[in-house]
């Protein structure tokens, strides 16, 4: 069995080779393992004695896996405290990934730390001669991620929006998407960020007749399709298996997406 298969169902401890602090709340870990992750997929990160959480992958270059995470809950705050040389458990990769055709014009919309998985997409899609509009948004310029990395990519045009106007357009990044859609020639739209932003993107793309694919986030127990905790109403599609990258059409048909999610006991919680 190859390494990727061995780490599907059971975590393996790997070394954090390097840590980059992206901003006050966000760090990137360079993990000494490749699981053959495709852009959009996620892994489960295990912190022994603390918890295990699904985290999106910011890059897998065939020798190392990058995860960029926000110190938000108990587990990610503990993760934030780790140092280079420490070890974490990893298993995966899980779920669906982004796909495109050679030469496509893609709009990637990222809210906050959603920029990390979208950077992964951009990095892969330019190898297929895609032209990319990379639209980032955050509350203020200090919370914008990966700008320098995105700017270095060829065939990628960066668009910025901030809620307070400290950089780029003052307002939501969805306004930039609206203009790009109106200008035409967009093959597909991909998005990762807060669900209300994503919901707006699904609606805008549907109005414009452009296909959208969205990274969806839900509370998960297993991460590999067994427990049923992340099934979306009403289709029952699992965010861990039929997602996390799901089509805008599927999400538009869901009474759940953009309205509520479920907590760790399965109770509905309004967004």
């Amino acid at each position: 069995m190859n390494q990727a298969l061995q780490t599907y169902g059971q975590p393996k401890m790997v070394t954090i080779k390097k840590i980059v602090q992206e901003n006050e709340f966000v760090k990137t870990f360079f993990l000494d393992v490749s699981l053959g992750v495709k852009a959009g997929q996620f892994v489960n990160i295990w912190l022994p004695g603390v918890d295990e959480k699904p985290l999106s992958v910011a890059y897998d270059d065939g020798s190392q896996t990058l995860i960029t995470f926000y110190a938000f809950g108990h587990m990610t705050k503990k993760l934030f405290e780790l140092s280079e040389g420490d070890k974490v458990g990893i298993r995966g990769p899980y779920g669906t990934y982004y796909t495109w055709n050679k030469g496509d014009t893609l709009v990637l919309v990222a809210g906050g730390y959603g920029a990390a998985p979208m950077y992964f997409v951009a990095n892969e899609a330019i190898k297929d001669d895609c032209k990319i509009h990379f639209v980032v948004g955050a509350r203020n310029k200090d919370l914008l991620l990966y700008l320098d990395k995105i700017e270095k990519l060829p065939n990628v045009e960066l668009h910025v929006a901030t809620d307070d106007g400290s950089m780029g357009l003052k307002g939501y990044n969805t306004e930039i998407l609206k203009d790009l859609l109106a200008a035409g020639e967009v093959s597909r739209v991909f998005a990762c960020g807060p669900e209300m932003m994503e919901k707006r993107i699904v609606d805008l793309c549907s109005e414009a007749g452009v296909k959208s694919w969205i990274s969806v986030e839900r509370y998960m127990k297993c991460g590999f399709g067994v427990c049923g905790h992340c099934c979306l109403d009403d289709s029952g599609d699992r965010v861990c298996k039929e997602g996390p990258v799901m089509s805008g059409e599927l999400l538009a048909a869901s009474p759940e997406f953009g309205k509520y999610h479920r907590d760790k006991v399965g109770k509905k919680v309004k967004l």
Partner: peptide, 28 residues
């Protein structure tokens, strides 16, 4: 009534067996 289960990891799968301790969470 609501019952909180265990933290993750709650499930491990191998070629030969599967093991779980989800801890029977439910919203009631």
């Amino acid at each position: 009534n609501e019952h909180v289960g265990h933290k993750n990891p709650t499930m491990i799968g191998t070629e030969h067996y599967f093991i779980n301790a989800v801890g029977v969470p439910d919203a009631g």
